[in-house]
Nucleic acid binder design. Structure first.
Lengths: 264, 264
DNA sequence: ATTGTATCTAACGTAACGTGAGGTTTTATA
DNA sequence: TATAAAACCTCACGTTACGTTAGATACAAT
């Protein structure tokens, strides 16, 4: 009542914005106040407070300034559609954040148990959670649906437990790289990894058989496609590990499976 | 196995990134591949796939690239703390998004009932939901806590109903501005608004009395503070409405309250 | 005459790339 | 063998919504 216009500083306080923000809105034509012809100072009217409120509110709803500008001009905004759309976008964002939080929880649970974690192993585990959907999609190319279902139909808790065990045993592998494959210690660790796989999917041998069958298919897919399963091991480590595993399987009598294959 | 290095295009496909992204990571020193001395072409080794996976994963967890850079260098990252912190940030973000979605739901419910809504009224209603926390805080300066509790302790559904009624009646006001305050039509609309207030808080007269008492306090606060309650009316509309309301109250016999005040 | 306050314009910095523009090398084709 | 296509390179501007100096101007108070 006392004054029906504000200078920019006062107006910024009233609208809980900053001078710079008002300058910017002026610059992009979102809110052009009156000007004194001499000094060029900006003068805002009382009614323009509401305009700022509109802008702030729409910003809060997640609109970028250029869309806000259109909404302010269009007196007959197609609000309904716009708001529904905005809502859907937010719901998607929320899903993403939920997934990120879930992933972080897994990560923290891994760290809880293993006081020091090799960064590479850690990344691999996080990645396996993060990319779950893509992994499934990829596996559908080679493995029958029911096997995939079995593998991924597992509770978060169980998943966390497995992750902890993997972190532990993979760390052991990293320590042992370069030593004798036949060493008892090495074979124990490989056995532990095998146990984890077995725990995850009791018919693991079927899956391995299946993978052996479609090995060529897989290779062809891998040639051009992105790498979906990052390995926490260096090339040298991987080669060493492959040796150790093949020796383990030999000792364990993997021949049974080979027999089975030949009987088809 | 066939080759142990990749040119940038191939590597981009493998890591599911773009050439530009890899250029950028090189530029900021996040991932510097080998170069041919002659042409300057970049060559990436197999092991660098894992580095990219690390970057992608940490990005997914919401880290900015400069923090990722530090994490990649620090072999003994203080991951635990970092991840917990990150988690908290995400939880806050999720809360904000939830609030935004809730606000949008209110907005959509208003639009559902009133096929055309005045933008100014609409903004005011959204704002009242959006700023609920600040409004409460502000009211604590003048109004006893239990009154605030009573006002805001109201279900979302009821809130939505009230919003619809407010949208409708305020729209009526906008139509009537300028006509005779004493007109029956005008007085009916003002009465409807009064009913809404009464519905929201049966002891509305107590609150008004209280506000009348601390009027000076409020004025003092309003002088320097941001405008928390945006009005959907222009200055002229507000003046007209004030008149209409005071006539309504006179007719209704607001004198009782005035009496009460003098009896203190 | 000087100091302080409020304002102005101009212009760079931010994050993480996308998107050309214009130039070079190597490979494939007419 | 001339040329066109692939794949690469280095600038360098555009994007969002302001924050942050820097230097200049107007006006009021000391």
């Amino acid at each position: 009542m006392t004054n029906d216009y504000y200078r920019i500083g006062e107006f910024a306080k009233k609208t809980n914005t900053t001078i710079r923000t008002l300058h910017y809105y002026d610059e992009i034509g979102l809110l052009k106040p009156a000007r004194t012809s001499k000094t060029g100072d900006r003068y805002y009217s009382t009614n323009e407070i509401l305009t700022v409120q509109k802008i702030v509110t729409l910003k809060y709803l997640g609109y970028p300034l250029n869309k806000i500008q259109k909404l302010l001009n269009n007196n007959e905004w197609d609000l309904r559609q716009s708001l529904s759309f905005q809502r859907e976008e937010l719901v998607i964002k929320r899903q993403q954040i939920n997934h990120m939080i879930k992933t972080l929880d897994h990560a923290l649970s891994i760290l809880e148990e293993n006081q020091t974690v090799d960064p590479n192993i850690f990344i691999m585990l996080i990645n396996s959670i993060q990319m779950e959907a893509e992994h499934k999609e990829w596996m559908r190319n080679f493995i029958p649906e029911h096997m995939i279902q079995d593998i991924y139909n597992i509770s978060d808790e169980k998943q966390q437990q497995l992750n902890k065990r993997v972190a532990k045993e993979f760390a052991n592998i990293k320590k042992l790289v370069g030593t004798d494959h036949n060493d008892e210690h090495v074979q124990t660790v490989v056995a532990a990894i095998w146990d984890i796989l077995y725990d995850l999917y009791p018919n693991i041998e079927d899956i391995i058989l299946r993978i052996t069958e479609v090995n060529d298919d897989i290779d062809r897919h891998l040639a051009e496609a992105p790498v979906l399963f990052p390995s926490p091991f260096t090339v040298e480590e991987e080669e060493w590990l492959a040796q150790a595993i093949s020796i383990y399987l030999e000792k364990k009598g993997m021949e049974k499976i080979e027999d089975k294959k030949e009987n088809d």
